[in-house]
């Protein structure tokens, strides 16, 4: 952990994410207005001391909406990647540990999933079952576990031949013990990298879906749908598009930096 703090990339990423988490957590205290309350006397006001980031075409305070939107983004990211990671770790472990036919079947399934353009699959499924925060989290989760599966499988393939695993097997350890106690802990670092990278990706997908109007539904604010509303007025109210865009960019960047940092630390060749 201390090493993580000494790594400039991880530190920068960590600070960004910590800041976002605080914003999401303290949303009710940070927001200056009710994010859902329209104000017909304050339509499309530019940023000022009254409205830090201006107002939208219904006169709602953009700053407050973005603060609340961060909750949605982070929540969707965490749950979706959580689902993907659980699926990926389970399938990857099974695939890498048991090998042979089990491995072939799971890996072919992964290949098939990877052939399908995920984003259009998500679009189709959401169109079918209807957009809601819950549906979005689940759909993003069950369409983005393939990377984690491959990663965990690769780790397991090399770890299961390691001598300390063989030694535990010779001592009579059962498979679940070998997996949980001896192999999985050594695969955690790359899983963490994938998890962190995945978070950035999931937030991005959620924003894209909301932007297309089939993500988080108004009036619930999310960075994606603030951006959508902004695009209609982009020629007269730049702040509606720029700030949510920046927020998405910085968040994805933060997770990316943190992931890079963890990756560097877990790479033995870069250690001294």
């Amino acid at each position: 952990m201390r090493k993580l703090l000494q790594n400039p990339q991880a530190l920068a990423g960590g600070i960004i994410i910590l800041f976002l988490a605080l914003v999401a957590l303290l949303a009710p205290y940070l927001s200056t207005h009710d994010p859902g309350e329209p104000n017909l006397w304050a339509i499309l006001l530019p940023p000022s001391s009254g409205h830090l980031l201006g107002t939208d075409d219904l006169g709602r305070d953009v700053f407050s909406r973005m603060v609340y939107g961060s909750r949605i983004s982070l929540l969707v990211g965490l749950i979706a990647v959580g689902i993907a990671s659980v699926i990926g770790i389970i399938l990857g472990s099974i695939s890498g540990f048991y090998g042979k036919y089990t491995d072939s079947i799971i890996m072919r399934f992964v290949d098939i999933m990877l052939c399908i353009p995920t984003f259009f699959l998500i679009l189709a499924v959401i169109a079918l079952i209807g957009p809601s925060i819950f549906n979005i989290m689940v759909v993003i989760g069950v369409t983005s576990w393939m990377g984690v599966t491959r990663l965990v499988r690769a780790e397991f393939l090399s770890l299961r031949e390691r001598e300390f695993v063989l030694a535990a097997r010779a001592a009579g350890a059962k498979n679940h013990r070998l997996i949980i106690r001896h192999i999985l802990p050594h695969a955690l670092n790359p899983i963490m990298v994938a998890f962190t990278l995945g978070l950035g990706g999931a937030i991005f997908i959620e924003s894209a879906l909301s932007f297309l109007g089939i993500g988080v539904q108004p009036p619930t604010p999310s960075w994606g749908n603030i951006l959508t509303e902004g695009k209609d007025n982009i020629d007269i109210a730049w702040w509606l598009s720029v700030f949510p865009g920046l927020a998405i960019l910085i968040t994805v960047l933060g997770f990316y930096l943190l992931a890079e940092g963890i990756r560097e630390l877990s790479n033995p060749r870069l250690k001294k």
Partner: peptide
């Protein structure tokens, strides 16, 4: 299996770090 045990070559890699 309890009655047959093994000692490996490289104690570095045969012990869970």
């Amino acid at each position: 299996r309890r009655k047959i045990q093994i000692v490996f070559q490289d104690p570095q890699s045969s012990l869970n770090p």
